[in-house]
Design a protein around this nucleic acid. Structure first.
Lengths: 200, 200
DNA sequence: GTGGCGTGTCTACGGCCGTAGAATTGAAGG
DNA sequence: CCTTCAATTCTACGGCCGTAGACACGCCAC
C-alpha cells in the first residue's frame, strides 16, 4: 500500500481493487448476465482466473460490487430528506444522470440491468432494502411510509429504465428542466404524504 | 384451418401460433437473453429449427411477439383516459397484476425483462412509442403532454420492475388498496397536468 | 545468491447458445 | 397405390460461458 502505482504488479490489494472497479463498470454497462468474467478481467488487466481466485465466483463478485455501489446512497439519504425541496433535489439528481460518468445512481443502474437474472435480483433486493428503502422509510413520517418510500424508488427506477435502457425518446430528448418540473411535485407528494386525504 | 385440433401435426398455421404463444410466455418469464430457442420450441412441442424456419431468427421472433403483445394496450388507451378517475383506473390495473396469469401488462413485462439486451430494447422502444406513448400523448391535453405520458409509462415500468423483478418487500407485501391510494393521485396528476403552475 | 511462497497465467473441461444444411416424415392428389 | 411436396427433424458447427487444477513467474527474507 506504500506505492501502489510504482509496484502495480504483484500487488494483491491493488489488483483486487482494479477487478472491483472493472466489474462495477462492466455490470453497469451490461448487467449480471451480459458482463463476462473474461471481460471484467481484461478491464482490470488480468486473466479471468484471478477474478474467481479473489472473489470465489462471479456471483460473489457481483454481490460485493452491488454492496459497494450502494454503500454511498448519494441521494435518498436522511439529510437530503430533511430539506424542504426534497422532491426537486431528487429530481435534479435523477435527471442529471447523463452528465460525465459520475456514479450517484450507478448502483441502481447495475441492478436494473441485472434484474433479469433471478439471483442478481435477489442480491440487489437485499441491498436496496437495507441501504435505500429502510433508511428512507425511517426518514419519512406519516402513514404508509414504507409504501411511499418504495414508490419513490419505483419512480426512480422506472425513469432510469425508460430513459437509459429502453431509450424512450420523450425522456431522452426532453429538456431537463421540464422533467424536473414534472418530477419534483410527485416526489414531494410521496415524501410528504398525502395531505388532502391524510388517513388510512 | 378446418380441424386444427384433429390434425394438430402438419399444420403450419397452428404450429406457428403455438410457437408464438410459447415464445410470449418464455420471453415474459426470462427475457430476451434468458429465453432460449430450444426452450421456446419445446414449449410449442416442436424442435428449435422450426422456430428459425418460421421466423427467420430469434430476433425476428421477438419482434413479432412484442408487436403482438403490445397490439392490445389494455390500459392507457384513449377511451380509458377519457374517464374522470383515470389515475385510479390505471393504478388498479397496475396493482392487480398478480392475479391469474392474465396479460394486461405482459408486453411491459417482456420488455422490462429484456431491456438488458440492446437490440431487444430498441425493438421494444419502437413498439412502446408507437402503441403506448404516441396514443397516450395524443389523448393528453396541456403542456408537456409527451413528457407527462412518458412519466406515466416510467411509473408503470418502475412499479413493475420493483415489485415483479426486484421483489421489493414493501411493494410485494403491501395491501393493494394502499398502493392504489398512493398511486392514483400521482397518475391523475400526470394525466391532468399541473394545475397550480400550469405554465412552461 | 538462493530458496520459498504469494501472485498470476495456461490449458482445458462440460455445457449452453443460435443457426445452417441434409435427411426424413406425413398427408394429400393422381 | 404411389408420387409429390410441404412440414418437421437430425446432425453438426463455431462460439462463448463459468470455472477447476496444474504450472510459471517474481519479489522477499535469509
Amino acid at each position: 500500500m506504500r506505492a501502489p502505482t510504482a509496484t502495480r504488479r504483484r500487488n494483491a490489494g491493488a489488483t483486487r481493487e482494479a477487478i472491483l472497479v472493472s466489474a462495477r463498470a462492466a455490470f453497469a454497462r451490461a448487467g449480471y448476465d451480459g458482463a463476462g468474467v473474461r471481460d471484467i478481467a481484461e478491464g482490470a488487466g488480468v486473466t479471468a482466473m484471478l477474478v474467481n481466485r479473489y472473489f470465489g465466483s462471479k456471483e460473489q463478485l457481483f454481490a460485493e460490487v452491488v454492496a459497494a455501489s450502494m454503500a454511498t446512497p448519494s441521494i435518498l439519504t436522511p439529510e437530503v430528506l430533511d430539506a424542504q425541496n426534497v422532491g426537486e433535489r431528487i429530481a435534479t439528481v435523477l435527471v442529471g444522470i447523463t452528465k460525465a460518468g459520475a456514479d450517484p445512481l450507478e448502483g441502481f443502474q447495475i441492478m436494473l440491468r441485472s434484474a433479469s437474472s433471478e439471483r442478481a435480483a435477489e442480491i440487489g433486493r437485499e441491498q436496496i432494502e437495507k441501504r435505500h428503502h429502510k433508511t428512507m422509510t425511517a426518514a419519512l413520517s406519516g402513514d404508509l411510509a414504507a409504501e411511499r418510500a418504495a414508490l419513490v424508488l419505483a419512480l426512480v427506477a422506472g425513469f432510469q429504465v425508460m430513459r437509459q435502457m429502453i431509450g424512450l425518446s420523450a425522456l431522452v430528448d426532453a429538456k431537463p428542466a421540464a422533467l424536473i418540473k414534472l418530477l419534483a411535485p410527485i416526489l414531494q407528494l410521496l415524501v410528504d404524504g398525502q395531505k388532502p386525504t391524510g388517513r388510512v
